[in-house]
């Protein structure tokens, strides 16, 4: 604390006034201490006061004291300062909230550590699933099932039910053929049979499946897989990869094509992590696996 030119009344004065007022409030009969409580600081050049200032202080003090007596009960006790040394009193006067300061500092440090630990524990390098995989077009469980049931609304809605959960995204989880489900009669639906030309499973059509959406620390990952009529993976692409920060974009620019081509050559979700893209790789695998599982459940048979 640099010693600056003293203003008419500085904060220390205010603190001193407060302190005196508090004492007086506790004991109204106590006479106003004539001079100030001696600030025995060694470096007290600036406290050498002049008379007018003293008078102003006294007046202010009187006012404060009167105010205090009105509500004198709740003042925190002098118990906390057991007539301690002058030095202790002085620092107390300078930092009246010493205890609270310590508490605030402690709390802040503990919360920082605690939150960081919490984040570490709750953050595996794989994300949480936001939405399940869904079939966009082609083969479905419904069309793979025995002919007569295929397009009843019940069966159509059973298709996405084969996937982990019903939190599927907006994409019509139903096959293109079954999109007009609602208005259609509940009996066998000719429309679906027109489109899904091959009623007997496995249908010789390409099937496109959107994998589950996984959210990790950088953003969302979701793949889209196209299966050939023979059930092989003929195309894998990403619908979502983290894009919020430049670094993610740069990483994914090289990681995603590699993941895609690896998936195609592996014909499975068994792809290696691309270095530097751990999170994307992990969730890519999981999204791809969910797409494959969904397709298999719908009757898209694997080649290998």
């Amino acid at each position: 604390m640099a010693q600056l030119p003293a203003p008419p009344m500085n904060l220390d004065d205010v603190h001193r006034l407060e302190e005196l007022a508090r004492r007086r409030a506790q004991d109204p009969k106590r006479p106003l201490p004539e001079p100030r409580v001696a600030p025995v600081a060694p470096a007290s050049q600036s406290t050498a006061s002049t008379d007018p200032k003293q008078a102003a202080l006294a007046a202010r003090l009187e006012l404060l004291a009167q105010r205090r007596t009105g509500s004198s009960t709740g003042n925190q006790g002098s118990a906390s300062s057991p007539s301690g040394s002058a030095a202790a009193n002085r620092s107390k006067r300078r930092h009246p909230a010493q205890g609270a300061r310590a508490a605030a500092l402690g709390l802040s440090i503990v919360s920082t550590g605690g939150l960081a630990a919490l984040f570490a524990v709750s953050n595996p390098s794989t994300g949480t699933q936001l939405a399940a995989a869904s079939i966009v077009s082609g083969q479905t469980a419904a069309s793979a099932a025995v002919g007569s049931q295929t397009a009843t609304p019940a069966a159509a809605s059973a298709a996405p039910a084969a996937t982990p959960q019903a939190a599927a995204p907006v994409v019509g989880a139903a096959p293109t053929a079954a999109t007009p489900t609602a208005p259609v009669a509940p009996t066998p639906d000719p429309a679906s049979q027109q489109v899904n030309i091959a009623v007997p499973a496995p249908a010789p059509v390409e099937t496109t499946v959107q994998g589950a959406v996984f959210q990790n620390k950088w953003g969302n990952v979701q793949v889209e897989v196209t299966f050939g009529a023979d059930g092989s993976l003929i195309d894998v692409s990403t619908l979502q990869t983290p894009y919020r920060d430049g670094k993610s974009v740069r990483i994914n620019d090289y990681a995603v094509p590699r993941l895609n081509s690896e998936a195609l050559s592996a014909q499975s979700a068994n792809v290696d992590t691309v270095s530097g893209a751990t999170y994307t790789s992990n969730d890519y695998r999981r999204s791809l696996q969910s797409a494959i599982d969904t397709a298999r459940a719908a009757g898209v048979t694997a080649v290998a």
Partner: peptide
């Protein structure tokens, strides 16, 4: 309030 002196609030 009355529980804490104003100086306490300012200091904190």
């Amino acid at each position: 309030g009355t529980r804490r002196r104003p100086a306490w609030w300012l200091d904190l």
